[in-house]
Design a protein around this nucleic acid. Structure first.
Length: 851
RNA sequence: GCCGGGGUGGCGGAAUCGGCAGACGCGCCGGACUCAAAAUCCGGUGAGCGCAAGCUCGUGUGGGUUCGACUCCCACCUCCGGCACCA
């Protein structure tokens, strides 16, 4: 079948196999398949235009795992789709006059074709495109369910506004110290606007629970910090004014309430207007106005000097009954806690700075046992060694006991209660943009906002609108779209013109994959029950507090509506690293360091690109592009090609009558076999089988752990061993065949084309990707002789070659008998001999001085 | 500032429940093949000393624990990512 030494050229066979796999629906996942299901998902891309090398990197890892799981007998679903709503399509319309729908559709066509060249086992029959009305119809339906469940609401709030994109952003989409837009990098500004929110805060506590899922620690920490749960107490401070309700503050340190010497309100606090003394009114309103004008960046800066204004009113410390002045200052944020704090300068750095600036009293009430108050700073940290002082009956208690006791005392008096506060805010989901799912709400002058009846979904995006960004949705420019009737009274009503954040689309796409053609419901409950939850999810860590948190929220909310029966969407998560340019910078067109995967595949073929990407380093780490080493990986595949054609090189010899099982020659046996040449060959076969079975074990573990770089290095070693065995004349032995077939099977997930080609040439059944994963035989993987390092005082001095089951006494005797060891002992007895079974021997000399 | 992850040959990286540091690959050096080159194959390749056997040093820095430390502990330096007046 093969010509001797036929040249290795992937271009001659790769496209043909891809066509055949597609024609045969080789990778289609069948719901009725009785084998255990395995839902493997990788984050779907935004159809930006061209497949980037990063897409290859991200997809190849999970594809390898998907292929291995399938060969291991699982019914694997590995779908792909497009997150196709979003701003770039609209910007293309503005810049180039192409309609977003056309731009998106042509990009998807191009990227779908590029995806095919990767040779991934995507099940394209399940493709989901979120801008398809058949998809966003159900996104809208889900919005209505959230609305009916009280989880979607409209409210006026200070929100983040991107002045360049002319759109509001969720808190999670504002990044960095300079508070910039995640998409365009422009610093955001605060605006008071009426917007739609999803009530993510209702699930704050449950989102902190990761016990059901196997996720990377950094992602769990990022979500935990973002949710920002703080335990403490709310405490009421009476106000010295008739008929005015007490002011409630939140603190994590109720043990320090005896040290509260002033109170600070956020400038936006509702009590400011009623409490401000007439003679302070001018200064207060000037400060409040200035605070409002300032950008978020200036206001949030921690380095900025603490400044505020006394409003001319007093509160009463509930524990000391002291009169304390009420101030306003912008370091107190309106959206967190109660928007009011008790100022405890002795035990909070910010309060300390404020007190120093305005000469307010500083009273230390928690100190190390028998210790002195620090000079010139706050005492923030508290340990078990610290006790309350100058705190009435509570003096002498530890800080922890003080928190509990004081909270209890306040609760009994009706002046406070234990309380929990979170940093997370509700998810702002409305966008003043065109290319998204319209929010299915109509406003009736009589009945207010009403959801569009489910029968009337989808609310279709009109084709003709004016895309020029004006700060309001382009949908407002279409009168036909705007006009609606009230679902309650059928009277004239106005349609909501904002669209939904694209992260709403991606919060449920994994459900749609289970039955993408279902048209009576958002998903087929039976299919979702079969496939969900996702067994393994992969994608970028940049979505830690965006998509990955929103999707968890969605599933929990839908579960509580009775629509789903599980708690978490993604049981396991793995994050890939980023591929950087050769200049170690993020790839970008402006830097000119972008690597085009199409150029590489046309030169080297897909398998080489896949293997090279996996060989760069740990998959979760990424790294800079190093164009020179791709040649090495290509050479490796060339060697695989060569060893799979054993009669094309080396010096093959037929060894008659030598079945696989007999190929065992114990090298430790005293009587050498009669035929020395045969014995050498048998030893070589034995060694090759050992290498084969070790590789099965190592590569299986490495793939499962996403250690593709080390998996490939072990496959290289097996290939090198095959090359050596061929040169030793083992090419026609069963051990060689076993090693070669194993190599192809183990390599198949990483290099699907060359392995299919060689498998076919060797006469294997189509397809290699439907073969069983090789079984590992521990007996064959074990060495019959092991080499044991011998150390003297921890330094390597000699080696012993022994059988693995050699008794420790015998090993010690052999080690001490070693000439090298004797030279270091100089006739003395060793102080001791340390043995780690199977690992090493360490002889400790008496040394010059004992001990 | 707080949280998290890293620093190992010329380069990417391996080894981390303490046990042969540098697997595998790139690059480089030498050789084979060739008129020559490319391709391919073989050998060498942490540093220093030595004719050699071998010895010494070596995993960001400085200490420590241990028979033995890239791995554990303490204190630092540095790079990357996230958060950032959250009371």
């Amino acid at each position: 079948m093969t010509d001797r030494g036929e040249r290795f050229d992937p271009r001659t066979y790769e496209p043909g196999w891809r066509e055949r796999w597609a024609a045969d629906d080789l990778y289609r996942a069948d719901d009725a398949d009785p084998r255990a299901k395995h839902y493997l998902l990788t984050m779907y891309p935004y159809p930006s235009g061209d497949l980037h090398i990063g897409h290859w990197y991200a997809a190849t890892g999970p594809d390898i795992v998907a292929r291995m799981r399938r060969m291991q007998g699982r019914n694997v679903m590995f779908p792909m789709g497009f997150d196709s709503f979003g701003l770039p399509a609209e910007n293309a319309a503005i810049d180039r006059g192409v309609h977003p729908a056309e731009w998106t559709a042509s990009n998807i066509d191009r990227m779908r074709a590029q995806f095919r060249t990767m040779g991934c086992m995507f099940d394209w029959s399940r493709e989901v495109v979120t801008s398809d009305p058949e998809y966003y119809r159900w996104t809208q339906w889900l919005f209505v369910q959230f609305f009916k469940a009280g989880l979607a609401y409209r409210a006026m709030a200070p929100v983040d506004w991107c002045p360049k994109d002319q759109v509001v952003l969720a808190r999670e989409q504002v990044e960095g110290a300079d508070r910039h837009c995640w998409r365009c990098g422009t610093p955001v500004v605060k605006r008071d606007l009426e917007q739609w929110f999803f009530r993510t805060t209702r699930y704050a506590d449950e989102l902190l629970d990761f016990t059901q899922i196997d996720w990377p620690e950094p992602i769990r920490l990022m979500q935990t910090n973002w949710i920002g749960r703080s335990e403490g107490a709310e405490i009421d401070f009476a106000v010295e004014a008739d008929g005015v309700a007490p002011i409630r503050v939140f603190t994590t340190r109720p043990d320090t309430v005896f040290g509260a010497t002033f109170m600070v309100l956020a400038p936006e606090h509702p009590s400011v207007a009623t409490l401000t003394a007439p003679d302070r009114a001018e200064e207060v309103s000037a400060y409040t106005a200035a605070a409002r004008r300032e950008t978020e960046i200036e206001r949030m800066s921690a380095e900025r000097e603490k400044a505020g204004v006394f409003i001319g009113a007093f509160a009463v410390n509930p524990m000391t009954d002291e009169r304390i002045p009420i101030w306003i200052a912008d370091y107190v944020l309106p959206g967190y806690g109660t928007g009011a704090i008790m100022g405890v300068p002795a035990h909070d750095e910010r309060d300390y700075a404020f007190a120093v600036r305005y000469d307010l009293p500083i009273r230390y009430v928690v100190l190390p046992r028998g210790g002195e108050a620090p000079v010139g700073k706050a005492l923030v940290a508290h340990t078990d060694d610290e006790v309350l002082v100058a705190s009435g009956d509570f003096s002498g208690m530890t800080a922890a006991d003080g928190i509990a006791a004081i909270t209890e005392e306040l609760a009994e008096r009706g002046q406070g209660a234990a309380s929990v506060t979170y940093k997370i805010r509700d998810w702002l989901i409305s966008r003043q943009r065109y290319w998204g799912a319209p929010i299915p709400i109509v406003y009736c002058p009589e009945h207010g906002p009403q959801p569009v009846p489910e029968d009337n979904l989808p609310v279709l995006l009109p084709h003709d609108v004016d895309f020029a960004p004006t700060g309001v949705s382009p949908l407002q420019s279409n009168e036909e779209f705007l006009a609606a009737s009230c679902p309650v009274c059928a009277g004239p009503a106005r349609r909501e013109t904002d669209t939904m954040d694209t992260f709403v689309d991606s919060s449920w796409y994994f459900l749609r994959y289970c039955a993408p053609k279902e048209d009576g419901f958002a998903w087929d409950p039976a299919a979702v029950a079969h496939w969900m939850p996702v067994d393994l999810y992969t994608g970028g860590a940049e979505h830690a507090v965006l998509h990955l948190m929103y999707a968890r929220f969605f599933v929990k909310a839908l579960r509580d509506m009775g629509l789903l029966a599980f708690d978490e969407p993604f049981l396991a998560l793995r994050n890939q690293g980023q591929i950087l340019g050769a200049d170690h910078h993020r790839m970008s067109k402006s830097r000119g360091n972008v690597v085009n995967p199409d150029d590489l595949t046309s030169r080297f073929g897909s398998d080489t690109v896949r293997c090279f990407l996996m060989f760069i380093g740990p998959w979760d780490q990424g790294g800079p592009w190093n164009p020179s080493s791709i040649e090495g990986v290509h050479r490796f595949l060339g060697r695989v090609w060569a060893v799979a054609q054993p009669d094309s090189g080396g010096h093959p010899r037929q060894i008659p009558g030598m079945p696989l099982e007999s190929g065992v020659w114990p090298p430790g046996s005293s009587a050498p076999p009669a035929d020395q040449e045969l014995a050498t060959l048998e030893g070589g076969m034995r060694a090759l089988r050992q290498a084969t079975h070790r590789t099965i074990q190592d590569v299986s573990e490495d793939y499962a752990g996403f250690h593709f770089n080390t998996a490939l290095s072990k496959l290289m070693e097996l290939t090198n061993a095959l090359g050596a065995a061929r040169d030793e004349g083992l090419a026609l032995t069963d051990a060689y065949t076993e090693a070669l077939e194993t190599l192809l099977l183990l390599l198949a997930p990483m290099a699907p084309h060359i392995t299919e080609e060689l498998w076919s040439r060797l006469g294997g059944a189509y397809s290699i990707h439907q073969q069983a994963w090789p079984a590992f035989d521990p007996g064959l993987a074990a060495a019959e002789m092991i080499e044991l390092p011998v150390q003297v005082d921890g330094k390597l001095r000699d080696r012993l070659v022994v059988a693995p089951d050699t008794a420790p006494e015998e090993i010690e005797r052999l080690a001490l008998a070693s000439e090298r060891v004797q030279a270091y002992l100089k006739g003395r007895a060793p102080r001791k001999v340390v043995q780690i079974p199977g690992r090493l021997v360490n002889v400790v000399t008496p040394g010059d001085s004992p001990g």
